[in-house]
């Protein structure tokens, strides 16, 4: 049974205000029937140092990814995982995390690959909750397992594969990494292996819009007007564009994917989770270097 949607004037301008909850809302709904709170962090131990009461941990590395194939969970494994966290198909899931919700957005994106209807982000994530002096605990919640159905993963609506990206060169592409990663400058010290990709630069014609342009200092999302300024005026996107976002492994670009899809309401936004760790090592694909997007012919 879904939990009521937050009516918050601060979210009213967003295309899908129902995809966000505020810290105030969450504080007053903890323990509601049908609500499951999940924490998803970059740091695998952060949850154990203290988390929002009743929240369960979900780890992007050890739980959301398949440990053998570079891919997400299979449908069966996803059903088992969610059941073990006490989530049913009709649960309202609120996800929050560290690093301005990068990994929380990433988890939300994986939930959407499996079509989970009601999954929301805690605006401001872990940082805001703690900054406001709200309570955290090391006590682990008691979880009653649930039955989650086996549903087919949809790898087309919100996800882009490399061949689709190759075909998308010249169409709206957003690179959300830092300007140094985009231009292909290397900042690592001599004698240290760069364990990432074999080439540095960006996908030709991709515009550089670092993920943080969508976030305020307190880790909340910028207002709709501010987001329009960044993505429409700044990067030249249009409200009916078909956009692909990418970063290094797909986490920062999930944050941008969320902003473009749920806050600005673009009709089609896909996250290229292979991102630069795949593209920058692929044989035979073009890249561009420097601070300009480059042209379709650049190779």
């Amino acid at each position: 049974m879904p939990v009521e949607i937050e009516t918050n004037p601060a979210f009213a301008d967003y295309a899908h205000p129902e995809a966000l909850v505020s810290t105030e809302w969450l504080a007053s709904h903890l323990g509601d029937a049908g609500l499951v709170v999940l924490e998803c962090d970059e740091d695998v131990l952060l949850y154990q140092t203290g988390h929002i009461a009743t929240a369960r941990k979900i780890d992007w590395h050890t739980e959301l990814n398949d440990s053998v194939t570079r891919d997400y969970l299979t449908s069966t494994a996803f059903a088992q995982l969610l059941g073990s966290k006490g989530i049913s198909r009709d649960s309202t899931v609120v996800i929050y995390g560290d690093k301005s919700n990068w990994w929380a957005s990433y988890a939300l994106w994986v939930f959407k690959l499996f079509g989970h209807e009601d999954v929301r982000l805690l605006n401001g994530g872990r940082e805001k909750w703690i900054a406001e002096g709200r309570e955290i605990t090391r006590e682990l919640p008691e979880v009653q397992t649930a039955e989650y159905p086996v549903v087919e993963r949809d790898d087309h609506t919100d996800r882009a594969y490399r061949d689709e990206v190759l075909a998308h060169i010249g169409l709206p592409l957003i690179d959300v990494r830092s300007p140094e990663e985009y231009s292909g400058e290397r900042t690592h010290m001599p004698n240290y292996p760069d364990e990432g990709a074999l080439r540095a630069g960006h996908i030709p014609t991709a515009k550089s819009v670092p993920w943080a342009k969508a976030a305020n200092d307190d880790a909340t999302f910028k207002t709709r007007a501010e987001l329009e300024k960044v993505y429409f005026e700044g990067a030249g996107l249009k409200s009916d564009d078909d956009v692909i976002s990418y970063c290094r492994i797909g986490e920062r670009s999930s944050h941008t994917w969320f902003a473009l899809k749920y806050l600005l309401g673009l009709p089609r936004v896909r996250n290229y989770d292979g991102s630069w760790t795949e593209w920058g090592s692929l044989v035979g694909v073009p890249i561009s270097k420097g601070s300009e997007p480059g042209s379709v012919l650049t190779s």
């Binding site: 740091d43 695998v44 131990l45 952060l46 154990q48 140092t49 560290d98």
Partner: peptide, 9 residues
């Protein structure tokens, strides 16, 4: 930092 407990570990 305390916010990076794995690294601290």
């Amino acid at each position: 930092p305390r916010e990076a407990p794995t690294t601290r570990g």
